[in-house]
Design a protein around this nucleic acid. Structure first.
Lengths: 215, 215
DNA sequence: GCCCACCTACCACTTTGGTGGTACACCGGT
DNA sequence: ACCGGTGTACCACCAAAGTGGTAGGTGGGC
């Protein structure tokens, strides 16, 4: 806050890389590295102490990995924007990072000048993502299509309909009213679909349906 | 299958645009427009009849919109790759299309040559997405962070823990064993968190937790 | 015509879930 | 030293969910 340059914290277990990134960043007078850390514990400590505008966080770290670190930072209610900065273009990592609340995901193989502009954007509040990851993100959203372990095909239309209503949190009685059938009949359908899906309660049905994207 | 060029079906209510796209596509000898349709019903019919390699689908259509059309095509078990081709860079549209199983999402303001290469990629099985949509997709995945309508802050650690277990489909008894407390105590916690979250059953808790990404 | 899958309905029954209340122990803050 | 929040436990009670079985009506397919 003393000057108008964005303060940055680097968390990465690789000293050489920190050095390089720091040099790069400080070529831009609008940004300044105010602290560095080589592991999660120290990173969280520095973050709490400095409350930087941006945190550049590596995913591959010994002991506690980046995602965990991210969660720890969120627990501490650090207000900084957290940008994951890593070599991993693995779908799971990207999705996990974003779900954990990352404000950006940049790959280490970016061109230096692109990195700088991305960081400036991030500092100004934009969610930044390496363009290479577009397809990955789209696939993550599509998640339903793939991996239908349970054979949803054996379900009758009525059963599918009731699954959706259960996934909306409705009780048997409410479902019965909505479909103009008796509660007993709803129970019959529920019983059958539980058998078919090999689940043990409507709660499991609900979470399964939501995760499968049956809306 | 007769020749090795990719067959394409255009579904768009705008004849002029169909004409333009068709001309563009047929500049590439590897692709061929085999049919056109100006609405959902006709589109599905043509799709079933021709089973084209690719379907270019507009979202803004009278009567039945593109997303619904997409679902209808999936219902018919059409094997074609379906590429949404639209002006809408609206997050909801993109997400809905991908969740409904679109194999691509391209914006109409693309450069013609980029469109051609994207279509070629799509025909060869790649999921194609207009680069402009990256940030949008990322935001969709982050969905948890934003819009905490319910004040999750008032929950005690124990309650949060139990919410997660409920979201895993566990019964009170199972939760009790896992936490080494009595079932009665679990019920107490459930009762309290239902009040705090203003929900009416553990099923609602489960779907809320899953949607909020509390894993 | 008959069979089969599906949807519907009713029954009795057990288990699980949710409500209301009281109570005690622990801990951190005033 | 007292208070409030938290976690634990017990109780009784009623509501909801799930199980087993039987059974009638419908519509499509052989």
């Amino acid at each position: 806050m003393q000057d108008n340059s964005a303060s940055i914290l680097l968390i990465d277990d690789h000293p050489l890389l920190r050095k390089g990134v720091k040099q790069l960043i400080e070529m831009n007078p609008n940004m300044k590295v105010v602290a560095e850390a080589c592991n999660a514990i120290d990173g969280v400590k520095q973050a709490v102490e400095h409350e930087p505008d941006l945190i550049l966080l590596d995913l591959n770290m010994p002991e506690i990995n980046g995602i965990e670190t991210l969660k720890m930072l969120r627990e501490e209610e650090v207000s900084s924007r957290i940008i994951v900065f890593t070599v991993s273009d693995n779908e799971e990592d990207v999705v996990a990072a974003l779900k954990a609340g990352a404000d950006g995901y940049l790959l280490k193989d970016m061109e230096p000048e692109d990195l700088l502009t991305s960081l400036e954007q991030a500092a100004s509040g934009t969610l930044v993502i390496s363009p290479r990851l577009t397809t990955l993100l789209a696939q993550a959203l599509q998640s339903n299509k793939r991996s239908d372990k349970v054979d949803t095909s054996s379900l009758t239309p009525r059963e599918k309909q009731i699954i959706k209503l259960i996934a909306n949190g409705m009780a048997n009685k409410v479902i019965a009213r909505k479909l103009n059938i008796t509660e007993g009949t709803v129970k019959v359908h529920v019983k059958h679909l539980l058998k078919k899906l090999r689940l043990r309660s409507r709660v499991e049905v609900a979470v399964w349906a939501v995760q499968e994207g049956l809306n």
